[in-house]
Design a protein around this nucleic acid. Structure first.
Lengths: 111, 111
DNA sequence: CCCGGTACCTTGCACTGCAAGGTAGCTTGC
DNA sequence: GCAAGCTACCTTGCAGTGCAAGGTACCGGG
Protein backbone atom coordinates (compact mmCIF):
# COMPACT_ATOMS: atom_id res chain seq x y z
CA UNK A 1 0.00 0.00 0.00
CA UNK A 2 1.14 3.41 -0.98
CA UNK A 3 0.08 6.87 0.09
CA UNK A 4 0.40 7.96 -3.52
CA UNK A 5 -2.28 5.56 -4.59
CA UNK A 6 -4.57 6.55 -1.73
CA UNK A 7 -4.19 10.17 -2.67
CA UNK A 8 -5.07 9.39 -6.26
CA UNK A 9 -8.18 7.61 -5.02
CA UNK A 10 -9.05 10.55 -2.83
CA UNK A 11 -9.45 12.73 -5.92
CA UNK A 12 -11.87 10.30 -7.50
CA UNK A 13 -15.21 11.78 -8.32
CA UNK A 14 -14.00 15.29 -7.55
CA UNK A 15 -13.01 15.66 -11.17
CA UNK A 16 -16.54 15.68 -12.52
CA UNK A 17 -17.46 18.43 -10.10
CA UNK A 18 -14.45 20.52 -11.14
CA UNK A 19 -15.23 20.16 -14.81
CA UNK A 20 -18.84 21.14 -14.40
CA UNK A 21 -17.75 24.09 -12.29
CA UNK A 22 -15.32 25.28 -14.93
CA UNK A 23 -17.92 24.93 -17.67
CA UNK A 24 -20.28 27.08 -15.65
CA UNK A 25 -17.96 30.01 -16.29
CA UNK A 26 -17.01 29.56 -19.92
CA UNK A 27 -17.37 27.59 -23.09
CA UNK A 28 -14.24 25.44 -23.10
CA UNK A 29 -12.77 22.68 -25.23
CA UNK A 30 -10.83 19.72 -23.93
CA UNK A 31 -7.22 20.85 -24.12
CA UNK A 32 -8.15 24.12 -22.46
CA UNK A 33 -9.95 22.21 -19.69
CA UNK A 34 -6.81 20.20 -19.06
CA UNK A 35 -4.76 23.40 -18.80
CA UNK A 36 -7.16 25.00 -16.35
CA UNK A 37 -7.22 21.91 -14.19
CA UNK A 38 -3.45 21.66 -14.31
CA UNK A 39 -3.03 25.23 -13.15
CA UNK A 40 -5.17 24.28 -10.14
CA UNK A 41 -2.87 21.29 -9.48
CA UNK A 42 -5.27 18.67 -10.80
CA UNK A 43 -3.45 16.61 -13.40
CA UNK A 44 -5.69 14.77 -15.85
CA UNK A 45 -5.15 13.09 -19.22
CA UNK A 46 -7.41 13.43 -22.22
CA UNK A 47 -8.15 9.73 -22.07
CA UNK A 48 -9.97 10.51 -18.84
CA UNK A 49 -11.82 13.55 -20.09
CA UNK A 50 -13.24 12.43 -23.42
CA UNK A 51 -15.30 9.57 -22.02
CA UNK A 52 -16.49 11.77 -19.17
CA UNK A 53 -17.54 14.63 -21.44
CA UNK A 54 -19.38 12.23 -23.72
CA UNK A 55 -21.13 10.70 -20.75
CA UNK A 56 -22.24 14.08 -19.40
CA UNK A 57 -23.37 15.15 -22.83
CA UNK A 58 -25.41 12.01 -23.38
CA UNK A 59 -27.07 12.72 -20.04
CA UNK A 60 -27.97 16.15 -21.48
CA UNK A 61 -26.03 17.98 -18.81
CA UNK A 62 -23.60 19.36 -21.39
CA UNK A 63 -23.99 20.61 -24.92
CA UNK A 64 -21.30 21.40 -27.46
CA UNK A 65 -20.76 23.23 -30.70
CA UNK A 66 -18.00 22.80 -33.26
CA UNK A 67 -15.68 25.69 -33.86
CA UNK A 68 -12.95 25.74 -36.49
CA UNK A 69 -9.48 26.48 -35.25
CA UNK A 70 -7.08 28.91 -36.93
CA UNK A 71 -4.39 26.27 -36.78
CA UNK A 72 -5.43 22.66 -36.64
CA UNK A 73 -8.53 20.52 -36.60
CA UNK A 74 -11.90 21.85 -35.35
CA UNK A 75 -12.71 21.85 -31.65
CA UNK A 76 -15.72 20.87 -29.61
CA UNK A 77 -16.63 23.70 -27.25
CA UNK A 78 -18.67 22.47 -24.31
CA UNK A 79 -21.10 24.38 -22.11
CA UNK A 80 -23.73 23.57 -19.48
CA UNK A 81 -27.36 22.96 -20.32
CA UNK A 82 -30.12 24.01 -17.94
CA UNK A 83 -30.24 20.57 -16.31
CA UNK A 84 -26.46 20.83 -16.15
CA UNK A 85 -26.75 23.99 -14.06
CA UNK A 86 -29.14 22.26 -11.68
CA UNK A 87 -26.75 19.32 -11.56
CA UNK A 88 -23.89 21.64 -10.62
CA UNK A 89 -25.94 23.08 -7.78
CA UNK A 90 -26.54 19.61 -6.40
CA UNK A 91 -22.88 18.71 -6.63
CA UNK A 92 -21.86 21.98 -5.05
CA UNK A 93 -24.17 21.39 -2.14
CA UNK A 94 -22.88 17.82 -1.75
CA UNK A 95 -19.32 19.14 -1.84
CA UNK A 96 -19.99 21.54 0.99
CA UNK A 97 -21.69 18.85 3.06
CA UNK A 98 -18.88 16.43 2.47
CA UNK A 99 -16.06 18.82 3.31
CA UNK A 100 -17.89 19.84 6.49
CA UNK A 101 -18.23 16.16 7.46
CA UNK A 102 -14.59 15.41 6.80
CA UNK A 103 -13.41 18.52 8.59
CA UNK A 104 -15.38 17.55 11.68
CA UNK A 105 -13.67 14.16 11.68
CA UNK A 106 -10.28 15.49 10.76
CA UNK A 107 -10.18 18.01 13.57
CA UNK A 108 -11.34 15.49 16.10
CA UNK A 109 -14.14 17.70 17.29
CA UNK A 110 -16.37 14.76 16.53
CA UNK A 111 -17.26 12.59 19.51
CA UNK B 1 -26.82 9.80 -15.28
CA UNK B 2 -27.85 10.70 -11.85
CA UNK B 3 -26.61 13.29 -9.39
CA UNK B 4 -26.97 10.72 -6.65
CA UNK B 5 -24.45 8.47 -8.26
CA UNK B 6 -22.04 11.32 -8.90
CA UNK B 7 -22.26 12.32 -5.26
CA UNK B 8 -21.52 8.77 -4.19
CA UNK B 9 -18.50 8.80 -6.45
CA UNK B 10 -17.39 12.12 -5.01
CA UNK B 11 -16.99 10.51 -1.59
CA UNK B 12 -14.79 7.76 -2.98
CA UNK B 13 -11.36 7.58 -1.43
CA UNK B 14 -12.34 10.05 1.29
CA UNK B 15 -13.41 7.15 3.44
CA UNK B 16 -9.93 5.79 4.01
CA UNK B 17 -8.80 9.21 5.17
CA UNK B 18 -11.73 9.49 7.60
CA UNK B 19 -11.07 6.07 9.09
CA UNK B 20 -7.41 6.73 9.63
CA UNK B 21 -8.28 10.09 11.18
CA UNK B 22 -10.73 8.50 13.60
CA UNK B 23 -8.25 5.81 14.55
CA UNK B 24 -5.71 8.49 15.38
CA UNK B 25 -7.89 9.49 18.31
CA UNK B 26 -8.99 6.16 19.74
CA UNK B 27 -8.84 2.43 19.56
CA UNK B 28 -12.08 1.52 17.79
CA UNK B 29 -13.74 -1.61 16.48
CA UNK B 30 -15.78 -1.81 13.32
CA UNK B 31 -19.35 -1.23 14.50
CA UNK B 32 -18.20 1.77 16.49
CA UNK B 33 -16.41 3.13 13.43
CA UNK B 34 -19.62 2.85 11.44
CA UNK B 35 -21.51 4.76 14.15
CA UNK B 36 -18.94 7.54 14.28
CA UNK B 37 -18.96 7.91 10.52
CA UNK B 38 -22.73 7.89 10.46
CA UNK B 39 -22.94 10.66 13.01
CA UNK B 40 -20.75 12.70 10.65
CA UNK B 41 -23.16 11.94 7.78
CA UNK B 42 -20.96 9.36 6.10
CA UNK B 43 -22.97 6.20 5.61
CA UNK B 44 -20.92 3.04 5.17
CA UNK B 45 -21.64 -0.67 5.41
CA UNK B 46 -19.47 -3.25 7.10
CA UNK B 47 -18.90 -4.98 3.77
CA UNK B 48 -16.95 -1.88 2.82
CA UNK B 49 -14.98 -1.56 6.03
CA UNK B 50 -13.75 -5.08 6.65
CA UNK B 51 -11.78 -5.39 3.42
CA UNK B 52 -10.38 -1.88 3.91
CA UNK B 53 -9.26 -2.51 7.49
CA UNK B 54 -7.64 -5.76 6.45
CA UNK B 55 -5.87 -4.03 3.63
CA UNK B 56 -4.54 -1.27 5.87
CA UNK B 57 -3.46 -3.79 8.45
CA UNK B 58 -1.62 -5.92 5.90
CA UNK B 59 0.20 -2.76 4.86
CA UNK B 60 1.23 -2.36 8.51
CA UNK B 61 -0.53 0.96 8.85
CA UNK B 62 -2.96 -0.46 11.39
CA UNK B 63 -2.64 -2.96 14.21
CA UNK B 64 -5.37 -4.62 16.23
CA UNK B 65 -5.91 -6.50 19.43
CA UNK B 66 -8.79 -8.81 20.40
CA UNK B 67 -10.99 -7.81 23.23
CA UNK B 68 -13.78 -9.91 24.61
CA UNK B 69 -17.18 -8.30 24.75
CA UNK B 70 -19.52 -8.47 27.73
CA UNK B 71 -22.29 -9.51 25.40
CA UNK B 72 -21.46 -11.21 22.15
CA UNK B 73 -18.43 -12.36 20.20
CA UNK B 74 -15.01 -10.76 20.72
CA UNK B 75 -14.07 -7.56 18.90
CA UNK B 76 -11.04 -6.42 16.98
CA UNK B 77 -9.92 -3.05 18.26
CA UNK B 78 -7.83 -1.22 15.69
CA UNK B 79 -5.25 1.51 16.21
CA UNK B 80 -2.59 3.25 14.11
CA UNK B 81 0.99 2.03 13.89
CA UNK B 82 3.88 4.47 13.55
CA UNK B 83 3.88 4.19 9.75
CA UNK B 84 0.13 4.68 10.00
CA UNK B 85 0.63 8.01 11.70
CA UNK B 86 3.03 9.10 8.96
CA UNK B 87 0.49 7.89 6.41
CA UNK B 88 -2.22 9.99 8.05
CA UNK B 89 0.00 13.05 7.85
CA UNK B 90 0.46 12.53 4.13
CA UNK B 91 -3.26 12.08 3.56
CA UNK B 92 -4.06 15.11 5.66
CA UNK B 93 -1.68 17.22 3.64
CA UNK B 94 -3.14 15.88 0.39
CA UNK B 95 -6.63 16.63 1.66
CA UNK B 96 -5.75 20.25 2.34
CA UNK B 97 -4.13 20.64 -1.06
CA UNK B 98 -7.10 19.08 -2.80
CA UNK B 99 -9.74 21.14 -1.05
CA UNK B 100 -7.77 24.29 -1.79
CA UNK B 101 -7.61 23.32 -5.48
CA UNK B 102 -11.29 22.59 -5.69
CA UNK B 103 -12.25 25.72 -3.82
CA UNK B 104 -10.23 27.82 -6.24
CA UNK B 105 -12.12 26.26 -9.14
CA UNK B 106 -15.46 26.28 -7.42
CA UNK B 107 -15.35 29.95 -6.61
CA UNK B 108 -14.25 30.85 -10.09
CA UNK B 109 -11.30 32.85 -8.85
CA UNK B 110 -9.21 30.60 -11.07
CA UNK B 111 -8.27 32.07 -14.48
C1' DC C 1 -31.26 -26.37 22.81
C1' DC C 2 -32.58 -23.26 19.54
C1' DC C 3 -33.20 -18.44 18.26
C1' DG C 4 -31.93 -13.73 17.75
C1' DG C 5 -28.34 -10.51 18.06
C1' DT C 6 -23.63 -9.30 17.31
C1' DA C 7 -19.22 -9.43 15.03
C1' DC C 8 -16.28 -11.05 11.65
C1' DC C 9 -15.48 -11.93 6.56
C1' DT C 10 -16.08 -12.95 1.22
C1' DT C 11 -17.88 -12.55 -3.50
C1' DG C 12 -19.62 -10.32 -7.56
C1' DC C 13 -20.95 -5.99 -9.53
C1' DA C 14 -20.78 -0.99 -10.96
C1' DC C 15 -18.13 2.78 -11.63
C1' DT C 16 -14.10 6.09 -12.26
C1' DG C 17 -9.42 7.35 -13.83
C1' DC C 18 -5.31 6.12 -16.35
C1' DA C 19 -2.01 4.33 -19.84
C1' DA C 20 -1.61 3.14 -24.31
C1' DG C 21 -2.88 3.24 -28.78
C1' DG C 22 -5.64 4.76 -32.90
C1' DT C 23 -7.90 8.10 -36.54
C1' DA C 24 -8.10 12.31 -38.96
C1' DG C 25 -7.63 17.34 -40.04
C1' DC C 26 -4.38 21.12 -40.69
C1' DT C 27 0.23 23.44 -41.50
C1' DT C 28 5.01 23.62 -42.63
C1' DG C 29 9.13 22.49 -45.22
C1' DC C 30 11.18 20.51 -48.99
C1' DG D 1 2.23 18.20 -54.02
C1' DC D 2 3.48 15.33 -50.55
C1' DA D 3 5.73 13.79 -46.27
C1' DA D 4 6.27 14.88 -41.40
C1' DG D 5 4.57 16.77 -37.33
C1' DC D 6 1.23 18.84 -34.56
C1' DT D 7 -3.33 19.10 -32.77
C1' DA D 8 -7.76 17.32 -31.57
C1' DC D 9 -10.89 13.71 -31.14
C1' DC D 10 -11.89 8.92 -29.42
C1' DT D 11 -11.50 3.74 -27.72
C1' DT D 12 -9.87 -0.24 -25.09
C1' DG D 13 -8.14 -2.81 -21.22
C1' DC D 14 -6.65 -2.51 -16.52
C1' DA D 15 -6.49 -1.24 -11.51
C1' DG D 16 -8.78 0.12 -7.64
C1' DT D 17 -12.80 1.54 -4.41
C1' DG D 18 -17.52 1.01 -2.36
C1' DC D 19 -21.76 -1.56 -2.07
C1' DA D 20 -25.28 -5.28 -1.82
C1' DA D 21 -25.89 -9.72 -0.66
C1' DG D 22 -24.77 -13.64 1.56
C1' DG D 23 -22.08 -16.64 4.82
C1' DT D 24 -19.75 -18.27 9.40
C1' DA D 25 -19.33 -18.27 14.30
C1' DC D 26 -19.84 -16.77 19.15
C1' DC D 27 -22.88 -15.51 22.96
C1' DG D 28 -27.01 -15.06 26.04
C1' DG D 29 -32.07 -15.75 27.10
C1' DG D 30 -36.11 -18.19 27.24
Amino acid sequence: MDAKNSITQMRRGILEFCIVSLLAEDEIYTAELIDRLKSANLIVTDGTLYPMLNRLQKAKLLQYRWEESESGPPRKYYSLTDPGIAFLEQLDSAWQDMTASVESIRKGTQK
